[in-house]
Every structure is written in C-alpha cells, then in structure tokens.
Design a protein around this nucleic acid. Sequence first.
DNA 1: GTTTTCCTTTGGTATATACCAGATTTATAT
DNA 2: ATATAAATCTGGTATATACCAAAGGAAAAC
Lengths: 239, 239
Amino acid sequence: MTSIPSHTPQYMWIKAQLLQRIQSGALKKGDKLPSERELCTIFNTTRTTIRESLSQMEANGLIWRSDRRGWFVAPERLWLDPTQNTNFHQLSREQGREPQTTLLSGTLTTVPVEAVEALQLHPFDQIYLLTRLRSVDGRAVCYCENHCLPARVPELLSHDLNGSLTEVYETHYKLIYTSMHLSFYPTAMPAQAAQPLGVMEGRPALLLRRLNYDQYGRVLDLDIEYWRHDSLRIEVDTH
Amino acid sequence: MTSIPSHTPQYMWIKAQLLQRIQSGALKKGDKLPSERELCTIFNTTRTTIRESLSQMEANGLIWRSDRRGWFVAPERLWLDPTQNTNFHQLSREQGREPQTTLLSGTLTTVPVEAVEALQLHPFDQIYLLTRLRSVDGRAVCYCENHCLPARVPELLSHDLNGSLTEVYETHYKLIYTSMHLSFYPTAMPAQAAQPLGVMEGRPALLLRRLNYDQYGRVLDLDIEYWRHDSLRIEVDTH
DNA sequence: GTTTTCCTTTGGTATATACCAGATTTATAT
DNA sequence: ATATAAATCTGGTATATACCAAAGGAAAAC
C-alpha cells in the first residue's frame, strides 16, 4: 500500500478506524484491543506503524497499555476541583467510582532537597515520608509522596495510613486542611512512580504538587502526586 | 554495544546523557540539539532509538521539535492561576515574557455542537467564532477558539481582536469577566490547532476549556484553548 | 486439588534501510 | 543586488526483522 502517499499518514487512518470502533461502542471502556501483531495483519502493516497509532491514542487518553498484557480502552477521567477541600475518597465516591489507597512505605527520613524550601525546613531536618498508591475501580491511577512534619503530626506512623490522611489528621491531631498551594502540569513518569502504577518510566504523566496549610495557617505537609495522564481532569469554578 | 543488556534500555542512557548536557548548561534554553542523524553517530545507534529518547524528553517538556528544523531545548513554562482574573498579556509580562496575539479568523457561524450546551443556545444559533494564536517570546504556545454571543457583543468583528479580548469587552461593551468554569487536562493536539502551532497532529497537548461569566452572572463566552503541553503550568492558591 | 514447570503470547527494545516533504542553504541566473 | 532554481539537510513515515522479558495459560509433577 505504498502507492498513494495520500498526504495523510497511514497511522492516522488506522487511528481513525480504531477511534470509530470505540465511539460506535464496538469497543467499550475497559475492553482489550487486538494485540499489536494482530493489528498488523488486520491493517496490513508493521508494528512500528501500529505502535505510532497506539501511542497517539494513548497521548489522547483514549487507550492505555498494561505492560505485556495489551492495550485497553480507557475509563472516564476522575475530576478534581482544587478549590474544594474534598479528598480522594469523597471525590471518587461522588463520581460513582470505587477508591482505594494502599500504603507502600512510611518512614522517618531526611527531607528531600526538592521539599526543603516549601516546608520551610533546614537541609537535614527529618520528615515523615509516606508513599501511597491510589486506585479507582481497581486500576492504579496515582502515586503519592506525602512529606509530613513531625512537629505537626508526631507518631504519625503508628496510625492506619491506608485511608484518608485528612481523617487521620483530623481525628488524631485536630488538624484540618484549610488552604493550599497547588501546581499542576504534564511531565514524564519518574521511575519510583512508574513501577507501582504499572506505567513505563518516561511516558506522559501528570504532576500535582500540593502544599497544604492547617486551620492556623501553618504549613502542614507537602504532597507530590504523579497521576496517569489519562485519569485526571482539573475543574475550577470561581463562582 | 549490544553486549550488556544491563536492564536499563539504551534510550534511557542516551536520555540521561542529553539531560546532563542541558542541566550542566552545555545546552541552554533555546539551543538546537544535534540532528537525529548526528546523534545516531554520536551514540552509535539508529534513529528509532534516538527518537525514543527524544520523544520521552519531549513528553517531559524538556525539549521540543520544530517540524523539519530540529529539536530545541524548551523555555520555561508560563504559569496561570485560574482563580485570578489575569489575562494572557498581563500574565506573560508579569513573568518577564513578551506576549503576542494574532487573529487567525473571525466569523459569524452556526454554533459548534460541543458548545451548544455550555452556551445555553439552540442547535442552529449563530455565534462569533474567533480563532487566535498566542505566542510568548516569539514562540507560538496556544491556539484559542473564542465562542462569543452576538447578544452580548454585537458587531464584535468590527474591533481590533489582535490584543486582549478582556479589554475589548470592557471598553466597548462594559462587560467584565467576573467568574468562570474551567476545565484542564492533557490530550492530543487536534488538526486545526496543530497547523498554526507548528506541532504535529496527535502529539501531547493541553486542553483548557473556559466558560466565562460577566458581572451580571450571565454566560459571556466559551474559550477553548489548546496549549503546547510543555508551555503551561496551573497554579492555584486557596488562601 | 495444588504447586511447579514450561510454552506461548504480548509488549519492549533495537538494527538496518528507504523514501518523502518541508525548511534551509547554496548556487545560479537575471 | 535580487530573484530564482537547485542541492542539501532535517525530521516524518514506513517496511522488515530480530531478540528480550514479563505475563498468562497449559501441562506436568506432586
């Protein structure tokens, strides 16, 4: 099929074909696409070309890959209004999804360089560092690193950290998330987040960095979250 | 160099090498990278591998490509606080950048389907549709589609639309952007935006959709913006 | 029935090569 | 000097092929 250059690349045409299958409902959310090699024979081309189509649809957030398992039609994005103080669990349930948080690690360590300034600490101060994995409907969507101040939340590690941190803060320390500074932009998935999310290092990702303040206006913690780039949408209402 | 599988792919190593050149300042913002073919000989590999490294660094927002001209080190992101009512020109200048807006087209047309509901119109109502291109420091970063209501801004097209719409609204119609509903997420660059931005269709992009209200709480217009994914960062402060 | 082992499938990585089209530069003609 | 044409450089697209590693399922051993 090298005859007609046709000005629109082949991978575009293939992309359009796959898109139609999704939009028509022939392929539903969660469905597995044919394997790359099957698609090669279906569209009579090579994996390089097929993978170009798939990569672009992945960038679009339409499909996602599970390493060595295949390509799947992506579910709806979760949406977040950063000006509302809803936590992950509330938010998910309100949107009819089933949230889950699992603690990957919780340690007392020296504050990472990138967090020193935000937390107003000295270079070798200690913090609680929690790494947690968040899933919606069984699919891992977010890897979080919580940098918490021992001064605010002593003995933090003795509590159950598999749920909402907000609630732990409130019930055990009488501290309430009151305001925050949030930063949000697309970047590439770093190694530590890639592993637990089952995403390849270097693929598109969303970085959400949140510096939280308590009801007294003091810095409470720094939350660095890496989201699957196809799983989150920011919605802000300034009414 | 196929000897040691080493568990970390070759493109990662190349990526790290290039990254070092950027971080050390050997390659400065705006600089052109060696051509893909040159990189092939430098790192003794093929274009497929080199392009994998480059694509990932592009996803990272570290470098960008100018079609058939080469790869360049990316400038700083512009940042935007959607809760502040600063327009593009203010915002850019405050951040020490030189903004520019050029009108690509301005017409009175039937409202696009995706805008009907938001603008509370009927399927065949007319709107002013402006398409504009925004640049910072000479680099196109954003393609906007403004869907404006003739009821609010009659004879809109008779004004100069190469600057700030905010100002046109204010000076000619006494209308002020007061609140908005904003939606923000990564997606792929659509054809109409790809062309003027000089980005390839299907590459990662940021979609920013903004429904604006005037001082009377009425819908004013719908703004759909496609940003280069490496050029914008959202910052929200809830203090 | 349960565990272990092996095979198959799947995506991940990589080489080698080729041609195209737009952008840029150089050479040429005016 | 300027305009025009040609050569060259660059990324964009595509084919063909190969091997690897992890995931999943099937077969074998217990």
